[in-house]
Every structure is written in C-alpha cells, then in structure tokens.
C-alpha cells in the first residue's frame, strides 16, 4: 500500500488541512448563528463588528449578550478543547506506543474531578473551581508518574498500571466526596461538572488557559519527529540516540497540561482523545508531524459540531460528554472493524 512520494504526500497534507480549515470556519459561522435564541446572520455580523470596532451595533442588548457572551466563548472553548484533547491523545499514543491509549488514562480527569468537587463542596467561586480542577489533574498525574520511580520500575507498563490504580483510587475519593455533598445543590453541580459541558464558559476562563495550552501545543509540534522515534519503543529509541527520559517527560508534561487545561474548562470529555487521533492516522498516516495539526483541526471541528448539537437539539441541553460517547463509541468500533478487514 503505497502513498505516493514526498510531493504527493505534501499535497495530500495541504489538501486535508485546507479542507478541515474551511469546514471549521464554516461550522464556526453556523454555530454563531444557531441556537434557542433567534439571531439572524446579519445581526451576528453587526454584533461582532460592533465589538471589534468598539462601536454600537444597533442590536438589542440581549442579542449582543447572547452572541458575545454565550455563543462566542462557547464556540472558542469547544474548538480549543477538542483540538487540545486530540493532540494530547496523539502524544500519549506515541509515548506509550499504543494507539489505544486515551488522554485520561494517567488519571488527569479523575484528579481534576476531585479538585473541582472539593471546590464545589467548599462553595468556592467558579474561578477557584477551575484552578482546583487544574491542580487536581496535575497532582494526580504527578502521583501516577512518581509511583514507578518510587518502586524503581520506571517502564511504560508500570506507568500504565500506575495510572489505572490512581484513576481507581480517585474514583473512590470522588465517590466519598459526592456522598458528603448536599444532594440538593452540590451533588448536582458536581455531577454536571463531571459530565462535562460548555454552558457557563466565559472568555476569561479561556484566556487564562490559552497561553499555557498554546505553549504546550507548540512544544509538542516542535518535538513531533522525535515523538515518531519515541514511538518505536524505549530500547530502539535509545539505540537510535534519543534521550528517551527527557523526551518522554517533556511529552507527558505537555500532553498533561493540554488535558488538564481542557478538563478544567469543560469537565471530563471522553472519546475525543481516542477517536480523533485514530481517524487522523487513517487519513494522513502515523507521522506525528502531520498528525498533530490534522488531529487538532479535526478535534476542534468535531467538538464544535457536538457542542452545537447539544445546545440546539432537544428541549433539554445534554452534557457534551454523553453525546461524544454516543457518537464516539460506535464510531470507534467501526474503525476497529475496518482496520481489521484491511488486514492490519
């Protein structure tokens, strides 16, 4: 199964990225205009232009508020989260040489949920909840990474097992926190947070995580060829001259920052970090240099579509994670079957 020479591959890459960008732009425009509150495209443009140029837009204040404070942050957040979760999935899969790894298996999501739950329990504000979620995710991964070092068995297998253990422990702790929470208000809030949703996102939230996630993404992109080498396995990579420990650590740190940032914005969203890298790999091949941008675009697009669906379809807004699961799981099974048939 050949894929053409260098020039053809470049062409394919440009085409794929180009198509994805156009699709993304289109869906963004559509997403700004649809929703339960009726806004015409013309009004949308007026409002956005008004905000950018600091002139009055001539539309009703409620319309302005809906477009600028409800929809725009939500759209940006879902694109950002989708892109970051996908890229972190690509990175984890490379580091652990396993296309079945998902971003949350090192315990980021579980740890973040605990952080958020504690914040909700103590009735801290929304900003503090996000911060605690972020810290919780980082602490969980730190524990996961330290266990293999502490028992002097610093291999990938040990890391995976450690992640499973930490994740399970975190679930128990979360269960306990839920148990002590006030069922009327706090329990519901914790559950909603855990299920993942974009509905109360504000621009400030996005801006506070954007720099960090941007840097992490850039570092991963710069290291993308080395990630290829790393994905050959520790021994092979080392014998080829890679500083395996350093590369692995950098990659895990960046991927974790991306995931933790996403979780603290929008709660736990599963399947995106698993399905999107897989799908991208089927289209542009396993080279991380190509895979990272394509996954980012595809992930952002996917997340935006799903989130827009959750807030426009049906009378009650569904948490986003449910829909990603409903779409993601069967699609993943389909991908696996297709892969098997192709004789892989």
């Amino acid at each position: 199964m050949g894929r053409g020479n260098q020039k053809n591959r470049l062409l394919l890459l440009l085409t794929v990225n180009g198509v994805l960008l156009i699709l993304l732009a289109t869906v963004v425009v559509v997403a700004v205009c649809v929703g339960k509150y009726a806004v015409t495209p013309a009004e949308c443009l007026k409002v956005i232009w008004g905000a950018v140029s600091h002139t009055p837009s001539g539309c009703a204040p409620m319309t302005e508020n809906v477009v600028l404070m409800l929809r725009l942050p939500r759209i940006l957040a879902s694109v950002l989260v989708g892109a970051c979760l996908s890229v972190s999935g690509v990175a984890y899969q490379g580091v652990f040489q396993n296309p079945l790894i998902a971003p949350d298996f090192l315990g980021v999501s579980s740890g973040a949920c605990i952080g958020a739950a504690v914040a909700i329990l103590l009735s801290l504000g929304r900003g503090s909840t996000q911060l605690m979620a972020f810290l919780g995710g980082i602490v969980a991964v730190a524990i996961t990474v330290l266990i293999p070092i502490a028992i002097r068995n610093n291999t990938n297998i040990m890391l995976v097992l450690s992640g499973v253990v930490v994740g399970a422990a975190a679930s128990s702790v979360l269960g306990f926190i839920k148990f002590t929470a006030d069922p009327e208000s706090q329990l519901a809030a914790i559950t909603y947070w855990t299920m993942g949703d974009f509905s109360y996102i504000q621009m400030d939230d996005i801006l506070s995580v954007l720099p960090m996630m941007g840097v992490a993404g850039v570092v991963l992109t710069l290291n993308s060829w080395w990630l290829d080498v790393l994905s050959m396995g520790e021994n092979q990579a080392r014998s080829l001259g890679a500083n395996v420990t350093l590369l692995r650590n950098i990659t895990i740190v960046c991927a974790t920052l991306l995931t933790a940032g996403s979780v603290c914005l929008a709660g736990t969203i599963s399947w995106v970090g698993l399905v999107i890298p897989h799908l991208s790999r089927m289209i542009v091949g396993p080279n991380n240099t190509r895979l990272i941008p394509v996954s980012a675009l595809m992930g952002g697009l996917f997340m935006l579509v799903v989130d827009t669906l959750t807030r426009t379809i049906g009378a009650i807004e569904m948490p986003v994670s449910i829909l990603t699961g409903l779409i993601g799981a069967p699609f993943y099974i389909y991908l696996l079957i297709r892969n098997k048939r192709a004789g892989a």
């Binding site: 339960k36 409800l70 929809r71 519901a188 509905s199 807004e317």
Partner: peptide, 17 residues
C-alpha cells in the same frame, strides 16, 4: 415554557427574556 430543570439553559433564558 421551560429554561431547564435544575441547570439554567442560558440561551433559552435569553429567548424568553
């Protein structure tokens, strides 16, 4: 109408105003 059952659906709220 309805603007949610525990969590406020902000757009629905905006549309009912």
């Amino acid at each position: 109408g309805s603007v949610g059952r525990g969590k406020v659906d902000l757009e629905a709220l905006a549309s009912f105003a």
